[in-house]
Amino acid sequence: MSKSITPKLSAFNRQSFVGFATIVQREVRRFCRIWVQTLVPPIITMALYFVIFGHLIGSRIGTIEGYPYMQYIVSGLVMMSVITNSYANVVTSFFSSKFQRNIEEMIVAPIPNIMILLGFVVGGMTRGLLTGIIVMVVALFFTHIQIHNVWITLSIVLLASMLFSIAGFVNAMYAKKFDDVSIVPTFVLTPLTYFGGVFYSIDMLPGFWQHASLINPILYIVNAFRFGILGISDINVGFAFGIIILFSAGFFIFAMRLLNKGVGIRS
């Protein structure tokens, strides 16, 4: 009994916390060092979305649930940036560490696996949050934004960036080559995001597709966030939080198992 408890308790001492903080610092330093690749692209893409979909096309669409199309998609696009950037940060950084083998610097050190995971995840969340703020600021150039509920808005951003940071970590553990890093974002994440209610309300879909959409976790994230901003949502916000927390917990446990086994990092 004592054997199984000791390591878990010892994972949360001062020494491990220094290790955790070091990983977070390293992660933040990494995405700041390559800011042209990490922080600038969301500004460009989102500005294009706002101009083309929000302004040019949106002005012909009219309103959705009482809000101009531009305001409706802002919340979706902010979330889309948060999700893709959190995921990209962790999957790229962790895979590069594997590829360059500097992951070994961590493996040989007495830093508990849970702190390695948390370090990368908080690094990803930091980029997600920062991207969210940047995109929000860009959006202010195009439309007026009022925040309906700050706490829901903020907590959903943090939860979503956490979930997708962990998912990025799992992806990176399995990845053997750079192709494996882009497969999931291209073939899974992008379609799920586009079908996740970023650009439309699921009420606009035919009956079957409305139900099918409900298995998409991104739908819950986008709607909960939209509720935080506009006060409207296709689904129950409490239920959305539950789903996100459940997915996060599942991915977290899975990531820890992979890390403890050393999948892809220890032979």
Binding site: S16, G19, T22, I23, Q25, R26, R29, E105, A109, I111
Partner: peptide, 13 residues
């Protein structure tokens, strides 16, 4: 940074 980071992994403030 490489050295400071490595020290951090060993819990050195």
């Amino acid at each position: 940074h490489i050295l400071i980071t490595q020290a951090g992994y060993y819990g050195i403030p």
